[in-house]
């Protein structure tokens, strides 16, 4: 039996984890459902999606259909962000509690298996559970919208689906066309997914890194990281680019330079193929690095 990774031991650990945390996870799922339902109902109540739609005489039915899709997308992605932060911050047990930490660390399984269990539950199973809950709330709400007095638009009011947008994940032009984030949120689905993985991995790392008040410490660390990233993104890159490409780089952002296909853009510097690969790596390398950090930290973890 391998000391590093054994699938029967991994499944045993996964089963053990789910049984031990069953109650906590059920509460969490119920909480997600009710908060999600309340938020959707509040959004519907305060939006002019239907009911008051006829006062916007200049707007077409397509506008409303698009708006409903936009709302669904925003709710899905916003909820994913908020709930994933909370859920991933409770990963790797509670290292604040010595007894629980000892109980966890002396379980006869490898550190890789323990880490994989956390990743499977807190990154992938959470994602699936969240998406299912989203559909459980969203499908009846959409049916309700369809059945409203604006039934004439019913064919337009469809359920926004994750699967529908999956092809965007593999299309670099939608990923790096950052301006779409403002225009059509669902077009930015891949960016949001990469942010989801990054944020989840970041909070998982925080959960294993800090012994006490890990959630708040991770929030502060995240805030500091964001500031550093912003400084890096705005000052350093522009400084470097102005040095490398002195012809008024500052007037171009990555997005508009890329989308316009200007000579001073990445497109001009790199071939599209290599540009895609590098940008893709940048997008998904962060969660991978953070997850790897949490694994190594778990290996070093002392109680």
């Amino acid at each position: 039996m391998s000391d590093t990774l054994n699938f029967s031991r991994l499944s045993l650990l996964l089963k053990n984890h789910l049984v031990e945390h069953k109650q906590k996870y059920l509460y969490y799922l119920a909480g997600m459902f009710f908060i999600g339902l309340i938020v959707v109902l509040l959004v519907l109540s305060f939006s002019n999606l239907y009911g008051h739609a006829n006062i916007y005489t200049l707007k077409t039915k397509n506008f409303y259909a698009t708006k409903w899709e936009g709302l669904q997308t925003a709710l899905y992605l916003g909820g994913l962000g908020v709930f994933s932060i909370i859920f991933s911050s409770v990963s790797f047990v509670n290292f604040n509690n010595k007894g629980e930490s000892i109980f966890y660390l002396i379980k006869p399984a490898s550190q890789l298996e323990k880490w994989l269990t956390e990743v499977i539950v807190h990154v992938f199973l959470f994602f699936v559970a969240y998406t299912l809950i989203y559909y459980v709330i969203n499908i009846p709400i959409t049916l309700f919208v369809r059945a409203s007095e604006y039934a004439g638009f019913m064919e337009e009011y469809k359920v926004w689906t994750v699967l529908e947008r999956r092809e965007n994940l593999f299309r670099a032009s939608t990923i790096f066309h950052f301006s779409t984030l403002k225009e059509d949120l669902y077009m930015a689905y891949p960016i949001c997914i990469s942010i989801y993985f990054s944020v989840t991995a970041f909070f998982m790392y925080g959960a294993v890194l800090f012994n006490r008040f890990s959630f708040f410490k991770t929030l502060i660390l995240g805030f500091l990281t964001f500031i550093v990233y912003t400084i890096y993104n705005t000052w350093l890159i522009r400084l470097l680019k102005s040095f490398l490409m002195p012809d008024d780089w500052n007037s171009y952002s990555y997005s508009n330079a890329y989308s316009r296909g200007d000579d001073y853009s990445f497109e001009a510097v790199l071939s599209p193929h290599w540009g895609d690969i590098i940008l893709y790596s940048l997008l998904f390398v962060i969660p991978v690095v953070l997850l790897a950090c949490s694994y190594f930290k778990l290996q070093e973890k002392e109680v």
Binding site: D3, Q23, K98
Partner: peptide, 22 residues
């Protein structure tokens, strides 16, 4: 090294012990 083979040979009951909600 906390290898599973070694961990399956020992059990520790700490003073601040923990029991799961099961």
């Amino acid at each position: 090294l906390r290898k599973p083979g070694m961990l399956s040979k020992l059990f520790m009951l700490p003073e601040d012990f923990f029991v799961p909600s099961v």
